[in-house]
Each structure stands twice: as C-alpha cells, then as structure tokens.
Design a protein around this nucleic acid. Structure first.
Length: 463
RNA sequence: GGCUGAGUGGCAGAGUGGCUAUGCAGCGGCCUGCAAAGCCGUGUACAUCGGUUCAAUUCCGGUCUCAGCCUCCA
C-alpha cells in the first residue's frame, strides 16, 4: 500500500485515487528565462520517479507539468537581450527538454504553457470576481482578497494575522490587505498583453497554475507537486483561487521536494550559487546526476558538491560492474521475490529511494557471489536488478558503455587505440614479459584507463 | 518575531523501542604473474540534558545548533 507524505495533512497518508485506478498529477514546472539548474533537475527527477512507480503499481497516470512562459522576469530578460519573449522562451524550453531528456526524465503527458491558457485564466478570474473573492484596484489590477477565503493558510500552516504582523510583507496602497495578490495585471505601455474584460493585461503569478491544472485535470485531482519554496505563497494561493472559483476541493495530496544545497545553503537564482544542469553534465554522466539525486529522500535536503558526485559515480559503477557480462533479456526461470518485495516496501513508504537503492546493492552483491557458480541464477538476478533499476530510471545502459564513458577529464585515446594496446599487452603476457605488460598497464592508467584481466580476457573501463 | 523541518559511524544517507541498513573511503584475508574487480571479515554511530520504560538512537519535554518559508525562487 503506497503512502505519501501529504503537506496538507502533515503526515503520510495512503493514496486513494479519486477515480479508482487512475491518478491525476500536476507539478509546477519551470519559468523559462534561463537554463535549468540542479534544483530544477531534482524536481524533474523526483516526480519522474513518482510517475514511474505509480505506473508500475498499475495506475493510469495523467501527468501534467506546466511551463511558465510569461512573467516579470521573462519580460525583463527579453528586454535586456533585446529580443521577443517568445524567442527567449522557445530557446529555453528547448534547452530544458535537452536537459531533462539527458537525465532520463520521461516527458509529462502534457506540458501546458501559461500563454496558451489565457482564456481559461480570464474565465477563472471572472468567476472569482463573480463569487466575491476578487476585486478591481484603483490601478486597474484584479486582486484576490485573502480574508474572503476562510481556509487561507491551511497548506502552509500560516495564519493571516501572523503573516500580516510579519516584517517582510510588502505594503501596497492599492490592495485592501497587504496579503492580497494579483490575479490579473494591467499592462504597462510596451509590455506583452492580452485583451480581457478589464482591459489589456497579463495573468498574475499564481493564477496560471490554477487555470491550467483544473483545465487539464478537472476541478478536483489527486496530487499536486513542486519544490518546498512553492508551498507558500504559490500553492496556498492556488488553493484559494481554485476552490474559490470552482467551489470544489482542489487537490487531495500535496507533495513538496526538498532543496538542493551548496555548503548547507539553498541553491537558488537569487543567491547566485547555482550550477546549471548542462554545466554539471560536462563533468558527470547524466545517470550519475540522476543517481545522486535519488540517494537522498525527496523531502530531505540534498547537498551538492563534486565530491558527492564522485561518490555517486563510484557507487553506480559498482552496480554496472555487477551487470557486466550478464546477458540481458532472458526472463525465464524463477524470480526471487525477496528483493522485489523489499524494494516495493521502500517505495511504498513515501518513495524511499535511498532504501530502494540499498536493495539494488544487495542484489548486486548476490550477483557477484553467484556469477561463477550459478550462471543462470546470477543472470536472473541481473535481470531483476535492471528491472528494479528501471523503476528509478537507472541501469538501462549497456554496462560497458557506462563503464567506458568516463568523465570529461579522462583520456584522449580512442577505444580502438586502447584495444590495440590491450592486444600488445596480451602478446607480452603470452610470452611472460611482465615488464612490458606492466608498462602498458601503467601507461594506460596514466590516461585514466583501468585494465582488468578476467577469465574471458582483458576488459577496460575508465576510472 | 511567527511557522516548518532537521541534527546518525571518516564522508554520504536510511531506519528501528531490545536484533546487519546501504554506498564511498579505511583496515585484514582470499583471488591475481602484478593489478583491478569481486567475495569474506572488520568500525565502542545515533547533538545535548532530563523523563517514560525491564530496555531509547528510536517515545515525551527542555536546551543548543543548522536549514527553509514568511519577498521572485524547484
């Protein structure tokens, strides 16, 4: 039985889909004015695993992850670059797809963009006006009146009075309450805008997600996810907007993933301490990054450093080393249920990927133990390892491909040249010329190539 | 100031009221022409102070420390 930590309930709850057998899931995606950083990668990978596992459990999943392609920062960045916002967003949407594809993140079923849902947004804003949750300011903006929504704060555990007393609430004369937020922003001259009953303007920060999620999944759906930082105010506001507009409950389960940190500090754009996915991928294979993300539980902080990536690389190497030389695809024979059960138990417990990975390593150890004594069984376990790995989006490469790819700092030698040297060394070994044999071994080691003499001959990998 | 969450062995990171996490690194052994990989063995770990209990790292309370949200942020 899958249980998920629900931010709304502040505890783990069993997943009970609204419609039996189906799960409707919405995740807040990116604002596309720059490249993905590792923090974005974490959201993408975490919810990719959620979706993979839900599908594995037999649920028919509809997975929506939006793209924010209109907002202040996009307008500003386009202006700075002297380009059209659509040129800007198109470029970064493509870059995002390149990055997520590299990380083995499956595409969502739909990737709605805010600018494609303007009419839905307008309808929703109008409904909020009709229902008395919104008002027109003297500036011509439409704002949400938080005091009209009695449950405001139920997700983040905040109280309106306390928020108001907080030191950092921005004061805006035109709002009825400092906590009120903009639903529809009147366009200033030269800004991108859309026609509306309230004049030319554009959507506020939070309304797009309410409009897109309810339009794509219905007024009431199962799971809504995103980063911790979206909990307040973004998701709180989404609830207020959606429930205010539809009169129905919005979302059953709210999932929030923890941050990526650098030196015990949140990685973020505003702090400027972020690494983009493409930077990291120049140094590490994408699967290593993915593995690294899954080594900590999704709600825990994840401290980023090269040292941790190196460790992740070694660990993943162990898994691939276990798979090396085993034929894949043969699924005949008895399956050992123990590993699968333990893997499932871990994943059923709020997607405990570190625990699930531990099962993978135990599987690897048994494969290694049996590989010379019970070929059939070790092959079987190898298939099991690949199958379970696949649920995490791992271990789907050919082992030699993974083991021989190395890092960017590695050798200039081509595989052909390496094979040639190995052949030379074999010849030396055949005539028991250990000196020459070792010379070649050490020369290759200088280049980051490790040779391993096995029963079936010499293999190489980078390391 | 308000509200969250967290403090586990050299590092990372799960988990549990009494019993092996797991990975990386280290040490010893086996294997190897030498290696590597692998296998076997190996580590006085659970911030701190009290409390509950036959028994607490695990439950409760205080303290300290850290991170996050309260402003755009995954």
């Amino acid at each position: 039985m899958l249980t998920i930590y629900n931010t709304l309930a502040k505890q783990k709850v069993p997943l009970t889909p609204i419609e039996p057998g189906k799960v409707r899931l919405y995740v807040c995606g990116m604002t596309v004015y720059d490249y993905c950083h590792v923090g974005h990668a974490r959201v993408m990978v975490v919810f990719d695993v959620v979706v993979r596992y839900l599908r594995h459990l037999g649920y028919q999943v509809t997975y929506i992850r939006n793209i924010t392609d209109i907002d202040d920062k996009i307008i500003q960045r386009a202006k700075d670059n002297g380009e059209d916002i659509h040129t800007l967003t198109a470029r970064f949407i493509q870059a995002m797809h390149e990055d997520t594809d590299a990380l083995g993140v499956l595409r969502p079923d739909l990737e709605p963009r805010a600018t494609q849902f303007i009419s839905n947004i307008i309808v929703m804003v109008q409904r909020l006006l009709d229902n008395g949750y919104a008002y027109l300011t003297s500036e011509g903006d439409i704002c949400y009146a938080v005091t009209r929504f009695p449950e405001y704060g139920k997700l983040s555990g905040k109280r309106i009075e306390e928020l108001r007393a907080g030191e950092r609430v921005e004061v805006n004369e035109t709002k009825q309450d400092p906590l009120d937020f903009v639903l529809w922003k009147r366009a200033k001259p030269g800004e991108p805008s859309w026609k509306s009953p309230w004049g030319a303007g554009r959507p506020g920060w939070h309304i797009e997600c309410s409009a897109m999620s309810t339009s794509c999944l219905g007024n009431h759906f199962d799971i809504h996810g995103g980063g911790m930082d979206l909990q307040f105010p973004h998701h709180e506001n989404e609830i207020a907007q959606s429930e205010g507009a539809t009169g129905e409950p919005f979302v059953n389960v709210w999932m929030h993933n923890g941050f990526v940190r650098i030196n015990e500090e949140k990685m973020s754009k505003s702090l400027g301490n972020f690494f983009t996915v493409r930077e990291v991928l120049q140094k590490y294979p994408p699967e290593v990054v993915r593995y690294f993300i899954l080594t900590s539980h999704y709600r825990s902080p994840l401290n980023y450093s090269d040292q941790h990536l190196d460790t992740a690389y070694h660990a993943l190497t162990r898994l691939y080393t276990a798979l090396r030389g085993l034929p894949s695809g043969d699924t005949s024979g008895e399956l050992e249920p123990t590993y699968q059960e333990r893997f499932s138990a871990a994943m059923d417990d709020d997607f405990n990927t570190p625990e699930a990975l531990a099962v993978l390593f135990e599987l690897a150890r048994e494969i290694n133990s049996l590989r010379h004594t019970d070929r059939a069984q070790s092959t079987q376990l190898g298939n099991e390892l690949r199958r379970l790995g696949n649920l995490l989006g791992l271990l789907q490469q050919d082992p030699d491909t993974f083991l021989q790819q190395g890092t960017s700092s590695a050798t200039e030698l081509s595989p052909q040249e390496i094979e040639k040297l190995i052949a030379d060394r074999q010849a030396a070994r055949a005539r028991r010329d250990w000196q020459e044999s070792d010379r070649i071994r050490h020369a290759l080691k200088e280049q980051g190539i490790l040779l391993e003499d096995g029963a079936q001959g010499t293999t190489w990998r980078k390391g």
